[in-house]
Amino acid sequence: MNYNIKRSVSLYSYQEEYYLGKLDLEGCIREAAKAGATGIELLAEQMMPNFPYVTPEFKEQWFGWMDKYGTEPTCYDAFLENKIYDNRTLTLREQVRMMERDIKIAGELGFKTLRTLCSTPMDVIKGSLDCAAKEDVKICIEVHSPFSLNSGWADGYMDMILGTGTKHFGFMPDFGIFCKKIPDVLTAKALRQGASPECVKIVNDAFANRVEKGFTKIKYDTNLGRAHGEYVKANGMPELMEAIEKAGGNAADMNYARASFNYTWCDPQDIIDNIQYIYHTHAKCYNTNAEYEETSIPLKEVIAAYKKAGYTGYLSTEYEGNSLLNDAFEVDSIEQVRRHQEAMRRAIED
Rank of each mutant, 00 (worst) to 15 (best):
D205R: 04
Y277K: 03
I202F: 02
K233V: 14
D174G: 03
L224A: 07
I202W: 01
E198I: 13
F169W: 06
E245W: 03
G248H: 08
M237N: 02
I177S: 02
V200M: 01
V143D: 04
M172P: 04
D159E: 15
E239N: 02
Y220H: 06
P197D: 13
A243M: 11
F169T: 00
H168K: 03
Y157R: 00
G170F: 06
Q276S: 14
D221C: 05
N250K: 02
R258V: 15
A251P: 06
I141V: 14
D270M: 07
E245S: 12
I244F: 10
I275K: 01
M160G: 06
A208K: 03
A234D: 14
C199Q: 05
H168T: 04
D184F: 11
S148T: 13
G165Y: 05
A190N: 05
A188T: 12
H228Y: 15
I218N: 00
D136Q: 05
M172Q: 13
A247V: 11
K181W: 15
L162N: 15
A227E: 01
K189Y: 08
D273P: 09
G176H: 04
G176Q: 07
V143Y: 02
K246C: 10
F261W: 07
D174F: 10
G163V: 12
E239S: 06
V185A: 09
E198T: 12
V137R: 01
R226C: 00
D155V: 08
G170T: 08
K180C: 11
S148Y: 02
D159P: 01
D184W: 07
H280T: 15
K219R: 10
M158W: 08
R192N: 12
H280I: 15
L224E: 14
G194T: 11
E230A: 09
A208R: 01
R226I: 00
Q269D: 15
F261N: 08
P197F: 06
Q193W: 10
N262H: 13
G249L: 04
R258T: 14
A243G: 08
V143L: 07
D159T: 11
K138H: 10
H144F: 10
D174M: 11
A234T: 04
N223R: 01
P268H: 03
D184E: 14
A208V: 11
E212G: 03
N204H: 03
H168V: 09
G225C: 02
M158K: 05
L240C: 10
I244W: 09
K213E: 13
K219I: 02
G236H: 09
N235G: 05
D253G: 03
H280N: 15
I161Y: 00
D184C: 12
T222D: 11
K181G: 10
K217G: 01
D205H: 07
V137M: 08
P173F: 08
K181Y: 15
D184H: 07
T264S: 04
D155I: 03
G156C: 00
Y231H: 06
L186T: 09
D273L: 06
E230Q: 09
A257T: 11
F207S: 03
